[in-house]
Computed example of a mutant assay.
Amino acid sequence: MMANLFSSFDPATTFNMSLNWLSTIIGLLIIPPMFWLIPSRLSILWFNIIITLHKEFKILINKSNGSTLIFISLFSLILFNNFMGLFPYIFTSTSHMTMSLALALPLWLTFMLFGWIQNTTHMFSHLIPVGTPPILMPFMVCIETISNIIRPGTLAIRLSANIIAGHLLMTLMGNTGPSLSLLLMNILIISQILLLILETAVSIIQSYVFTVLSTLYSSEVI
């Protein structure tokens, strides 16, 4: 049971296909060409979302020379893959640590290298919060160092765990369908629809959280 349950997250066993990672970019093939040619309601909606994200990330970066392009692109990539995973028979790439850690680790490593090379004194000041008693300073340095090191792991685990949890719950509920009566089947279908709406919200929220935390981490090294 558990092997069948988790096999939906295994790109090597899902339908015995080795190209399941193409789900990361395959959605680009189904975007209507009119989206790129003329202003449409979809393009106007997306432009408004981008402008809103740009204004918010600009405040978080808190620097006039900061660029929000990489963070908006990161949000778009994660949101796109989260939505693709909601469709039936499509491999969910963001549920794998391979995908989420590949996004979080290079960002964090780049921020750390830039901060320690360009603003070494500023980075050292982050290790000891203001007002820390002298006797606690060695412990605070250790705690702040550990919390800084585990940041890419927490980003990746938060994204993957939330995506996996929702998909597993939908799979478990769906597997009970054949053994239910007609009344319970109707209740199950309604529950699955509500859960799908919840997963849509989770996809948006997790994309936003991942991007906002990455933006906050970048603002600490400037």
Rank of each mutant, 00 (worst) to 15 (best):
G85V: 08
W46H: 10
N148K: 06
G27W: 07
P133L: 01
L77A: 08
P33R: 08
G131W: 00
N4H: 09
N65P: 00
I78S: 01
I26G: 02
P11S: 15
S43I: 12
I149Y: 03
W116E: 03
L42T: 00
G153H: 03
E144G: 01
Q118D: 06
V130S: 13
S43K: 09
F139K: 12
A104G: 04
N62P: 10
L86R: 07
I51M: 15
I150H: 01
F15C: 03
E144R: 14
N65W: 11
N162I: 02
Q118L: 04
P178K: 06
W46V: 00
N4W: 01
I128A: 14
N65A: 12
T14L: 09
H96K: 09
A102V: 05
L42G: 10
S179M: 13
L42C: 01
S76P: 13
V212H: 01
P33M: 06
T92N: 13
T121R: 07
I44S: 09
L195H: 13
L42N: 08
G177Q: 14
I25R: 06
Q118E: 04
C142K: 12
V130E: 13
P88M: 03
E220Y: 11
I163R: 08
L182M: 07
Y217F: 13
I44P: 03
L105A: 10
M17R: 15
L184G: 02
Q192R: 13
I164W: 04
P178T: 12
F6C: 02
F80I: 07
L159A: 11
S179Q: 11
P178F: 10
H96T: 15
A201E: 03
E56A: 04
S40A: 06
L37P: 07
A102P: 03
N4G: 15
Q192N: 08
L196P: 01
N4K: 13
M2P: 11
L45D: 11
P11R: 05
T52P: 00
S203T: 10
P11T: 14
F111P: 01
N162H: 12
T68K: 04
I78F: 00
L77H: 06
I205Q: 10
I157Q: 11
S179L: 14
